[in-house]
């Protein structure tokens, strides 16, 4: 059987680059476009999807799935009822309890190897058997086991980066010393951009600059929107403010991924 779905890992070198915000809004954008999407929180050190999506309690967590104590169906929460679009949204959460975070950070290599096997198995169980169009992994920044497991399992790695000097240098190193080694298709999103890219020439100039720096395709440039920051993680712009420029840029990014045009 041909599997048409795609696994996307959203990763970054540094924290605070906007991975979770991008993951949630990208998932919501795909749903808006009529896709069946599964968003998974693989940031076991600082879980945040439960807060962003305002889900008080889950019966099973992704921690349980990776521990091999339950199947993925038990973990997934159907949020399709919350949205007005024709698509479907499911989420799998990381357990935000301190004890769970501590436990996940103390796993050994053998456990991580099994966890990789269980992540790789999602291709069959979710993309193939349940017909999801996209699985989106929100990850921890940097070189963490859970993040590299996500990168290895993914078809496309989206790297969220800013123009912060240490982020640029670290991202460049990761591109050559991590994603390249695993032969992963990697695209960049420049987030929290402070300069004006409203003019066509300004945008093109910046796109050329970013491509020169990283030598990988650029999915999009997202300016630093005060409204997004003021939203304090409470607003999913792709759903609640579809006319906002942030939502419009995500529409373009989702189209590029859908059409494989980067």
């Amino acid at each position: 059987m041909i599997i048409l779905g795609k696994i996307i890992a959203v990763h970054s070198y540094k924290g605070g680059t906007g991975k979770t915000l991008l993951s949630v809004n990208l998932a919501a954008t795909f749903v808006k476009h009529g896709k069946k999407v599964c968003l998974l929180d693989l940031d076991f050190r600082a879980p945040s999807l439960s807060t962003v999506l305002k889900i008080e309690k889950a019966e099973y967590w992704l921690n349980d799935y990776l521990n091999g104590t339950c199947e993925i169906d038990k973990v997934l929460i159907d949020l399709s009822g919350r949205i007005q679009n024709k698509g479907q949204l499911f989420v799998g959460l990381a357990n935000p309890a301190t004890e769970a975070m501590r436990e996940m950070s103390a796993k050994d290599r053998k456990w991580e190897m099994r966890a990789l096997g269980r992540l790789l198995a999602l291709r069959n169980s979710l993309l193939n058997d349940r017909g999801f169009d996209y699985l989106i992994f929100d990850t921890s920044p940097g070189l963490q086991y859970s993040s590299i497991n996500a990168v290895v399992s993914a078809d496309l790695v989206i790297v969220a980066t800013t123009l912060d000097r240490s982020d640029v240098d670290g991202t460049k190193r990761m591109l050559h010393e991590l994603y390249d080694l695993f032969e992963k298709k990697t695209d960049i999103i420049l987030n929290k951009f402070l300069h004006d890219v409203s003019s066509k020439s300004g945008k093109e100039e910046m796109q050329t600059k970013i491509k020169d720096i990283y030598q990988v395709p650029l999915l999009g440039i997202i300016p630093c929107f005060c409204e997004v920051l003021k939203g304090e993680g409470n607003i999913i712009f792709a759903q609640e403010r579809p006319e906002h420029p942030f939502a419009k840029i995500l529409d373009e990014i989702a189209d590029k991924i859908d059409n494989n045009k980067t």
Partner: peptide, 24 residues
């Protein structure tokens, strides 16, 4: 020796390519 991602990263390129396929 577990074939975890850090082990994959530290392998020579020619072996990593093979190991990745078996992993998948």
């Amino acid at each position: 020796a577990p074939l975890d991602v850090m082990t994959l990263l530290s392998m020579p390129d020619h072996l990593r390519k093979t190991a990745m396929i078996v992993c998948r």
